[in-house]
Amino acid sequence: MNHALRRAMANAKMTEAQLAEACDVDGKTVSRWIANPTRIPHARHRWAACEALGEEEATLWPTAVRSALKTGPDREVIQVFPYRSAAPSALWRSLITKAQRELTFAGYTNY
């Protein structure tokens, strides 16, 4: 069972039918997402579910996010996100709390 999805639905007080409507899928499809943790919805449906539930994709379907990123010890660049807000908040929290000496927040904007 996808416990994270079930928990997010409970927190949002949303039924399977309501989530199905928000994602423009059949109610049975949402049931399958919940029942089978290895089932990964199409990206557009994941994004719609995340928006409806107020959760991050990495929380509800972590394997989908991992499979989309090229990671590993043989890579100089460990992870890349298209924009800051695409990085999971848990990652930011981890980076900040594990800092030992110094934090520098800098940005570059190309308008």
Rank of each mutant, 00 (worst) to 15 (best):
M1I: 00
N2Q: 04
H3K: 07
L5A: 01
R6Y: 00
R6N: 02
R7T: 07
R7H: 06
A8H: 00
A8G: 02
M9C: 04
A10N: 09
N11E: 10
K13H: 08
T15S: 15
E16F: 04
Q18D: 13
Q18V: 06
A20V: 01
A20Q: 02
E21C: 07
A22S: 09
A22H: 01
C23T: 02
D24V: 04
D24Y: 07
D26R: 08
S31V: 02
R32D: 05
W33A: 01
I34P: 01
A35F: 04
A35S: 13
P37I: 01
P37S: 08
T38W: 03
T38L: 09
T38N: 13
R39P: 00
R39Y: 05
I40T: 06
P41Y: 00
H42G: 11
H42F: 09
A43H: 11
R44M: 11
H45R: 09
H45A: 08
R46T: 03
W47P: 03
W47C: 13
W47R: 15
A48H: 03
A48I: 03
C50V: 06
E51T: 10
A52I: 01
G54E: 04
G54D: 03
E55Y: 04
E56S: 08
E57T: 06
T59Y: 05
T59I: 07
W61F: 11
W61E: 01
V65M: 09
V65S: 07
R66N: 13
L69R: 15
K70A: 15
T71V: 13
T71D: 09
G72N: 06
G72V: 02
G72Q: 05
P73E: 12
P73T: 10
P73W: 07
D74N: 12
E76S: 10
E76Q: 11
E76C: 08
V77R: 11
Q79T: 13
Q79E: 15
V80E: 11
A86E: 14
A86R: 12
A87M: 15
A87N: 08
P88I: 08
P88L: 06
S89N: 12
S89M: 14
S89F: 12
W92Y: 15
R93S: 14
L95M: 15
I96Q: 14
I96P: 07
K98G: 11
A99L: 10
R101H: 14
R101Y: 13
E102C: 13
E102M: 12
T104R: 15
F105A: 15
F105P: 07
A106V: 15
A106I: 15
G107F: 13
G107V: 11
Y111Q: 13
